[in-house]
Amino acid sequence: MNNNPFAPMFELQRQSIEQNQKMIEQSIEVQNEMSKSFVKAVESQKSAQEKGVDAWKSATETSLNVADATTPTDSTAFTDLQETINDQFDALSDIHTDVWESAERNIEAGTEVSDDMNEILLSFINDSVEIAMKTSEQFEEQSETVVDATDVEIE
């Protein structure tokens, strides 16, 4: 039987250390999940924006086709206008692609840095917890030695 009156304190200390470790691990896990969710949200936003531009282009082409069909002239003005508008939509599409590719590269790089930092942090936390637990056990052993040396009976 352990007659060390400090034993419960050391046990409580170790439980607290373990709980803090679990809390930090869960916090990092939540952060990682949030990063994944952000990447998915960006991908969804990119897709939605692309569809919006396609719908806008289609509506514009339809409007020009209707105007061309209802105008009683053999002018190439509508054809020229359609070509100009198509060129502008192509330029917009190129810009859109460049912007999203850049954003995706930056997000990916940021996510990789975050993952690396979290891995380093977890390693540091695990090492620190291991040291703290060993230190607590050593102090408990030393306190037992002191208690045993004093020959005090605890009832």
Rank of each mutant, 00 (worst) to 15 (best):
91 A>C: 11
79 T>F: 03
51 K>M: 14
73 T>K: 05
107 I>K: 04
83 E>W: 00
146 V>F: 12
86 N>L: 00
34 M>Y: 14
80 D>W: 05
29 E>W: 11
10 F>S: 14
109 A>Y: 06
138 Q>H: 05
146 V>P: 09
155 E>F: 10
59 A>D: 10
48 A>P: 05
81 L>Y: 14
107 I>Y: 10
30 V>S: 14
109 A>M: 05
105 R>H: 10
86 N>C: 01
7 A>F: 03
114 S>R: 14
6 F>S: 06
127 D>I: 09
103 A>P: 00
60 T>E: 07
98 D>K: 11
74 D>F: 01
108 E>H: 00
128 S>T: 11
102 S>E: 07
134 K>Q: 11
11 E>L: 12
119 E>F: 08
96 H>T: 06
106 N>W: 06
51 K>V: 12
107 I>G: 01
93 S>V: 01
141 E>K: 04
110 G>I: 06
113 V>F: 05
66 V>L: 05
15 Q>H: 01
135 T>L: 10
9 M>K: 09
6 F>Y: 14
56 W>N: 09
139 F>R: 10
125 I>C: 13
153 E>P: 03
19 Q>F: 02
22 K>S: 07
56 W>H: 04
16 S>P: 01
125 I>P: 06
144 E>Q: 00
91 A>H: 11
34 M>A: 15
113 V>M: 06
67 A>C: 04
138 Q>K: 07
30 V>C: 13
31 Q>A: 14
112 E>I: 07
60 T>L: 08
56 W>Q: 00
51 K>T: 11
1 M>H: 05
122 L>S: 13
34 M>P: 00
65 N>R: 12
96 H>Y: 15
96 H>A: 11
88 Q>Y: 03
118 N>G: 09
18 E>G: 15
155 E>L: 08
96 H>S: 05
118 N>C: 08
